[in-house]
């Protein structure tokens, strides 16, 4: 009942500020003019929001699509995977970007059933350390477990210098953290407290790793390979496998997961056209490798 009240007051506000229904809903027009490489150009305006790990890719694709198709605007927002899923389920946006599947996040009152998954890329993560952790170029899965659960607390236990290990986590709610926990830590319970840090984004993690002696963390390929970050960080192999796009594409590098774009129901209009563009040769063949993602595995 109170829920109803809230809805009602929301409507009351809507009335007071005189909001008409002209919000950012997709206004697909069927005037599909054939374009060279973008498949079908559809005019209109949509918003994609959510995962920050996918954001560089979606942003670049949206910019390119907008250039190729005048009259089409795809606005890209971050906010996190949870935001993307919540809002696409509520109909506030047209595409929700997520690092994780909707089933793993959504429950009542926002059922995942109506959401349609579009896997658009594979994204990888790499374990990075501060530059002062010399002599460590590889960590095995077991070594990672020992470090991240707090069993090993000094780099000399894994062949590095005599330096305390400072763990820099991503927030427990983040896709990066849950993927790492599942694929590498095998769901072991991570260390907490004392000298562990939590930073909420690739950028903040990079800053924290570079300014903290003995720090270790996990960041996305796109951020690690960024010319601003790469010289500041030690990127580690995982079980002797280099963290490269090729190894991720061939599934020999295991710290990788699908990037999802969700729509509420089957997409139509500009949303469908943009998703088709995401899966087309421009994005899969050219853009994706240049941004250190891997194409969709069929």
């Amino acid at each position: 009942m109170l829920y109803g009240m809230r809805r009602f007051s929301a409507l009351a506000i809507a009335a007071t500020v005189v909001l008409s229904a002209c919000s950012s809903s997709a206004t697909p027009s069927p005037a599909a003019t054939p374009a060279s490489t973008t498949g079908n150009c559809v005019t209109g305006s949509i918003t994609a929001a959510g995962s920050t790990a996918l954001q560089p890719l979606v942003q670049a694709a949206a910019t390119n699509y907008g250039k190729a198709c005048p009259g089409a605007t795809v606005t890209v927002n971050g906010g996190g995977s949870g935001t993307g899923l919540s809002q696409v389920a509520q109909g506030a946006i047209q595409i929700g970007d997520s690092d994780v599947t909707a089933q793993s996040k959504l429950a009542t009152p926002l059922p995942a059933d109506s959401l349609v998954d579009h896997i658009v890329a594979r994204q990888g993560w790499i374990v990075v350390t501060n530059k002062d952790v010399t002599g460590v170029t590889n960590l095995t899965t077991q070594q990672n477990v020992d470090i991240w659960t707090g069993k090993d607390t000094n780099w000399n236990q894994v062949g590095g210098p005599d330096l305390p290990i400072v763990l820099i986590f991503r927030p427990a709610s983040s896709g990066t953290r849950s993927t790492f926990k599942k694929l590498v830590l095998n769901n072991a319970v991570e260390a907490t407290g004392g000298q562990t840090l939590t930073e909420d984004s690739n950028g903040a993690v990079t800053t924290a790793v570079t300014t903290t002696d003995g720090a270790v963390s996990v960041i996305g390929f796109a951020y690690y390979n960024d010319p601003a970050n790469k010289p500041l960080l030690n990127g580690l192999q995982l079980d002797g496998v280099d963290a490269t796009v090729a190894n991720m594409a061939s599934s020999t590098y295991k710290l990788a997961a699908d990037g999802h774009m969700y729509t509420n129901g089957q997409p139509s209009g500009l949303t469908a056209a943009f998703l088709a563009y995401m899966l087309g040769p421009d994005v899969q063949g050219t853009l994706i490798p240049s941004l250190f993602y891997a194409p969709v595995v069929h």
Binding site: R7, I13, S24, T47, N77, Q87, A92
Partner: peptide, 17 residues
């Protein structure tokens, strides 16, 4: 209120209000 309940999504209007 603005983003979810009024289904505005992220907008300048919601921010300004």
């Amino acid at each position: 209120l603005f983003v979810d309940d009024l289904h505005l999504g992220f907008t300048a209007l919601g921010g300004a209000l």
